[in-house]
Simulated assay, not measured.
Amino acid sequence: MSLPVSIAGAPFLGDPAFRQVIAAVEIEGDRARVVGGAVRNTLIGVPVDDVDIATTARPEVVAARATAAGLKAVPTGIAHGTVTVVSSGRPFEVTTLRTDLETNGRHAVVAFTRDWAGDAGRRDFTMNAIYTDADGSLHDPVGGIADALAGRVRFIGNPIERIEEDYLRILRFFRFHARYGRGKLDAVGLDAAVSLQEGIGRLSRERIGAEMRKLVMAMGAMPALAVMDETGILARILPGGGALARLSTAIDLANRHDSPFGLEARLAALAVDRHALADALRLSGRESKQIAAIVLWSQEFAARMDEMTVRLAVIRTGNDVASAALLLAAAERGRDSATDLVPLARTFRPPESPVTAARLIAEGYAPGPALGAELRRREAAWIAAGCPAEFKDDL
């Protein structure tokens, strides 16, 4: 089978904002080519998010040319050759071709070059080192086109050398396979990742967390996580490893019921200890709070899985948390015990509660524990009655 030599007609190539950036940079003998995700995704029919540009022009030259063309230039990573050029309100990362002079497993000291093959050789995976000119002509110095089309995530050159340049590539190897791979993980790459897994300990938790968020949301997350668990890599990231069976069952149930099961829900299902998870992945306060709510309500559902508890969960936390907690509780039981309740958790929209503290105070209750207890009792009675708009509790 012959491989494609052009992606002419790709929507991003005709984008006026992109054309402005190329026109500004590609002058005086310099070249500029799109590299990485936009090219890979176009080849395999996946939506393009970001358009990254590689160029022979030095970063200070890129910034000057962009400014002269009326574009905004932001020196987001100028020491490593990257200038973000904003065109029509959209950012394009423009990075000078580079070679690595020194690496320490986390960061690299780079030198700028005009050698396209040298720039390709320092990248991680072959499918990420495919370039295209503005007219769509493809340049494939490391065989990335064939690998992308075959769903083969393969390190460029020696996998051990690539990983030793940045140990985050261990996690990226699993994440890219979960997102773009087909079949088994590349054996040579897997052997290298397993043998060098101690290097994960040299990475910041912020970088690890960013990769893990993307990994757990990928279509092929479960097989990739299973290999990470079997090889001990997952335990280096999450204390106690992960509750993979629970996560797998919860995802299956969510798919069966056409119910969302987002990032916080997946992390809650995966977590053996949510506090350790928050620390290991440097979760934000919002993420930690959401996960705590899902875990709490899953415990409530484990004790009592009925319509009243579902309505109460929705009222207290909203539909997303309620449905995620319900699915997690069902997954804990190892069976689909939430069949009739998932639609209620997703769609229940309660009217404004007629049970309020102001109403109780008007009836003579003084602020304090007694008022709180009566408020909870009446709210439970209102929910048990089906949350009617008009409610009178005579008890």
Rank of each mutant, 00 (worst) to 15 (best):
I156R: 09
A269K: 09
Q197P: 00
L203F: 10
V51H: 04
F173G: 06
R179Q: 14
S298R: 14
I200F: 09
A380R: 14
M1C: 05
V61Q: 12
G232H: 11
P11I: 06
A210Q: 12
D229C: 01
A218N: 02
D306V: 11
G70T: 09
N255K: 14
L328N: 06
A218Y: 02
V46C: 00
A108D: 04
F301W: 10
R316N: 13
E161L: 14
T231S: 15
R19G: 05
A24V: 08
T317G: 00
L215F: 07
R172D: 13
W116S: 10
M1W: 06
P260C: 09
L171F: 07
L281T: 08
G201E: 11
R256T: 10
N255W: 05
A278D: 02
A64W: 05
T82A: 14
D49Y: 08
G241C: 10
D186L: 01
T103F: 13
A73Y: 10
A69V: 04
L171E: 09
T132D: 00
R106F: 12
R377G: 01
M212Q: 02
A345V: 03
L281W: 10
G121S: 14
G89D: 12
G372T: 11
G372V: 00
A250C: 08
V35G: 01
S337G: 11
R106P: 01
V21M: 07
T103Y: 11
V142I: 10
L395Q: 13
E307P: 01
A221D: 07
C387Y: 03
V21R: 05
T339I: 10
F112N: 10
Q290G: 12
V48Q: 06
L43R: 07
I7G: 03
K72D: 15
L395G: 15
L215T: 13
D135L: 04
M308I: 13
L267Q: 03
A331S: 14
T84F: 01
L149M: 13
G136Q: 07
G77Y: 12
G29D: 12
A302F: 09
V142C: 08
S337V: 15
D124T: 06
S248M: 04
P75F: 12
F155R: 04
N128G: 12
G386D: 04
A293Y: 02
I160Y: 12
R19C: 08
A129Y: 04
G386F: 08
H80C: 03
R33E: 05
A381R: 11
N104C: 07
K392G: 01
V227M: 11
L168C: 04
E102Q: 12
P16E: 12
R162P: 00
P91F: 11
A192E: 08
